[in-house]
Design a protein around this nucleic acid. Structure first.
Lengths: 145, 145
DNA sequence: TCCTCTATGTGTATTTTACATATAGGTGAG
DNA sequence: CTCACCTATATGTAAAATACACATAGAGGA
């Protein structure tokens, strides 16, 4: 994993959350639990705690982050993670990868608007088509299906 | 897979390429080989042919697409895939998911610009950092075996 | 003939993910 | 005190996904 130098594969997934972790750690050291919460705030709804901790250990083994126990505050001991220089280098590589995803998404939605024009009118019988116009306010009632 | 009901999980990967497949098929019927090429044009550099064909069969089993043999043109017989009504419904759901990814990427790059301002000046000689210290790591992850 | 391109698959080991569970300290309610 | 709940880290493991190798076959050209 951490799929290194020249082979920047396109499929996201773990490689999608990875840059977010590194970016968060580039600003301030965090422990796993905090990280999990910040990632949720980013939009990752389904980060598995167990796998997150495992991933962090892997990142440490790969020397993209380093950790030390933090027994200062109250509550159980926390393993505080910091980014390494190698981690910073990789963050830049991952950012390039994410740019690719972004342009793919742009292409997708560009084509998708044409799709909507074709299909939305004829599908008005099925489930109520929410107005997908430029009315950004109402994003909430799109939870059908 | 094709995670059937309302649980639109956030992690991409197979779910990242899926909407692109459905979107392409929403415009015109295609066979796997064509699909593979169009996906590459979209930016998917590393679509595994074998897995793509397997995925298409799975999509057919899930009734998001349907297929029929096309023996018309020259060359070997092609399995021509078309999107179904269920596939169209799912395409809309996946599009919503991709919107989430898009906003996550926006957040990422917004924060990443700040990162660049902090790190780029001091990291102008990045090659020394990259080449140092982690040779064994970059060998054995991602492409070993 | 042999090579290459198109086209569709199977086999399978490894990697990743999902889900369950374990441990442990701290806090507040009753 | 006991219990529930939150923080915090972690392991076990079955299932799913991926990477990589390989098989088959038609058609066209050198």
């Amino acid at each position: 994993m951490v799929n290194n130098d020249s082979n920047q594969s396109v499929n996201p997934s773990k490689n999608f959350v990875l840059p977010f972790i590194l970016l968060l750690l580039s600003r301030v050291s965090l422990h796993g639990y905090e990280l999990s919460q910040k990632l949720q705030a980013f939009g990752f709804k389904s980060i598995d705690q167990g796998n997150l901790y495992r991933l962090l250990r892997k990142l440490e083994a790969d020397e993209l982050v380093s950790s030390e126990w933090d027994t200062s505050g109250n509550g159980p001991a926390k393993r505080k993670y910091s980014i390494t220089k190698a981690g910073i280098t990789y963050l830049r590589g991952y950012a390039n990868q994410l740019e690719t995803y972004q342009s793919m998404l742009d292409q997708f939605f560009s084509m998708y608007s044409s799709f909507l024009e074709l299909y939305i009118p004829s599908f008005s019988s099925r489930d109520s088509i929410e107005k997908k116009s430029n009315d950004k306010r109402r994003k909430d009632d799109g939870k059908e299906k």
